[in-house]
Structure formats: structure tokens, C-alpha cells
């Protein structure tokens, strides 16, 4: 059997397990229900169809993505390796004629697909509401870009979750670390950055560079840029970024999110592959 078939077999199992995981289902349902509610309320409040309606819906979805998607991706990523190590199923799996790279890629692919399914459901429902209300035609490409950015964010968080999982042996520990990081990325990130910049009297360029160290911030800036074409609402740092990087800003954000998806995953694999004793 080729490596691809083995990876796909493992991915299918992960996908099936994720869809049976009650936390994952709960997050998905919450995301879909809130996406539907926000879309409906944003469009109803807009009064008129068109870009204003789309902008409000998109802004609501950005906040929703920022809250739920990192939580979902970090949690399932954090459980991916450590829970199997803890139960002993990983040891039995690796006693089969398969390689660690296949196990890692199969798990990652399966969980990435389950996140895609979850996002597709939430954004799909929201998209249908917008199309039915007539505002969906305002800017479909901006909406698709928003979905792509949300998916990149989910992959970045999934990779961070995998890294935590590869570094620990107990699922409870890895999920705890994942939740702590979620708090850091989503809630404490802004405050920390504000505090640091004030305390250290940080130059505006450094503040912008520092914001790239948080994938949630990167997603937020990219998503706002995508629907608004300017980062003025983010204050001086946003103005600096638009002025300094201009047209290449979205590419910088995309590349940063991609790096967040690739680097922690590569580190997680390196740890998993070199874990001597199972």
C-alpha cells in the first residue's frame, strides 16, 4: 500500500472520530448557530441590502471566528497525539508496518478536513442567509477570502495544538496548555501588547511586528483589511502598516498565517518522529 493510501486511511479515521467528538460537535453547532444569528441580525439591522449588510455580517463573523475557531483547533490538535500515547493506541499503531510520517500526516489531514467541514457549515449557513437577503452579491470574493483566512487561522491553531500534543504525554495536560494558549491568543494578546508597548515605549513598527506573533491578531488584521481595504480602525499601528507595506500587506498576513501553520507542525513532527520511547 502506498503511503498516500495509508495517510488517507488514517485521515478518514480521524475525521470520523472528530465528528463523533462531542466537544467538536458542540463547537461546530455553536459556530453555525451564532453565524446564522449574527448574519440574520446584521442584515436585519442594516435596513438595506448591499455592502453595508455584508460588512456588518463579515465583522460579526470575524469576531465569531476569533473566539471559536482557535478554541476548536487548539483543543482537537492538543488531543491528537497525547491522547493516543496515554491510551496506548499509538504504540500499537506504530507497531504496524507504517511510518511515523504517515501517522502524523494522516492525523493532521483528518483533523484539518474536520475543521474545514465545521467552517464550511458555519460560513455556508451565513452565506446562504446573505444570498437570500440579496447582499451576498455585494462582494463574493471578499467573503471567500474571509473563509480562506479563517481556515488558515484554524490550521495555524491546529499546528500549535499538535506541537503541544507532541511535547506532552497526557491529554489533560495538553488540553490545559491549549486552553491557556487560547486565552493568551484571544483575550490576553491585545492587553499584553498594549501594556508592553506602553511600558517599553515601543516604536510603532515594532508594535506591528509584535502583533504578527499572534496568529489571531494576524487573522483579525487580514480579515479587516479584506473587507475594509484599510486598517485605520486599528489605530496608528494599522495606519503605519498600510502606509509602510501598502498593497503587499495582505500577502504579508497570508504568509505569516501560513508560517504559523507550517512551523509548529514541522516542530511537532520533529518531536514526534524523534520520540524514542513509546
Amino acid at each position: 500500500m502506498s503511503s498516500l493510501s495509508i495517510i488517507w486511511t488514517l485521515a478518514q479515521k480521524e475525521l470520523r472520530d472528530a465528528l463523533r467528538n462531542r466537544w467538536f460537535v458542540l463547537y461546530t453547532v455553536a459556530f453555525a448557530a451564532l453565524a446564522l444569528a449574527f448574519s440574520y441580525l446584521s442584515l436585519a439591522g442594516a435596513g438595506i441590502a448591499g455592502f453595508a449588510g455584508f460588512g456588518r455580517t463579515a465583522a460579526s463573523l470575524i469576531n465569531l471566528v476569533l473566539l471559536i475557531i482557535p478554541l476548536m483547533a487548539l483543543t482537537i490538535g492538543a488531543q491528537s497525539i497525547s491522547s493516543e500515547l496515554e491510551r496506548g493506541t499509538m504504540s500499537y499503531l506504530l507497531a504496524q508496518p507504517i511510518g511515523r510520517v504517515e501517522v502524523f500526516l494522516g492525523k493532521y489531514l483528518g483533523l484539518a478536513l474536520s475543521l474545514l467541514a465545521s467552517l464550511a457549515l458555519g460560513f455556508g449557513i451565513s452565506g446562504v442567509v446573505m444570498v437570500l437577503s440579496g447582499s451576498g452579491a455585494a462582494d463574493p470574493s471578499a467573503y471567500i477570502t474571509l473563509v480562506a483566512l479563517a481556515y488558515l487561522l484554524s490550521l495555524a491553531m491546529l499546528s500549535v495544538g499538535f506541537l503541544i500534543s507532541a511535547l506532552t504525554r497526557k491529554a489533560s495536560v495538553s488540553v490545559g496548555i491549549g486552553l491557556f494558549l487560547w486565552l493568551g491568543f484571544v483575550f490576553l494578546g491585545d492587553l499584553g501588547m498594549m501594556g508592553t508597548s506602553m511600558a517599553m515605549k515601543m516604536p510603532i513598527g515594532s508594535l506591528f511586528a509584535m502583533s504578527l506573533t499572534n496568529p489571531s491578531q494576524v487573522f483579525k488584521m487580514a480579515a479587516i483589511l479584506n473587507i475594509n481595504a484599510t486598517l485605520d480602525i486599528l489605530g496608528p499601528a494599522g495606519v503605519y502598516a498600510v502606509h509602510h507595506y501598502g498593497q503587499s500587506l495582505l500577502a504579508i498576513f497570508l504568509a505569516t498565517l501560513a508560517l504559523w501553520a507550517v512551523v509548529p507542525a514541522a516542530l511537532a513532527y520533529a518531536r514526534f518522529a524523534n520520540r524514542g520511547d513509546l
Binding site: M1, S5, I6, T9, L10, K13, Q96, P97, I98
Partner: peptide, 8 residues
């Protein structure tokens, strides 16, 4: 079936 697929 799962392990049969992994073992070709």
C-alpha cells in the same frame, strides 16, 4: 478492516 487497510 482498519488494520487490514494499513497492512495492505
Amino acid at each position: 478492516l482498519f488494520y487490514a487497510r494499513l497492512k495492505s
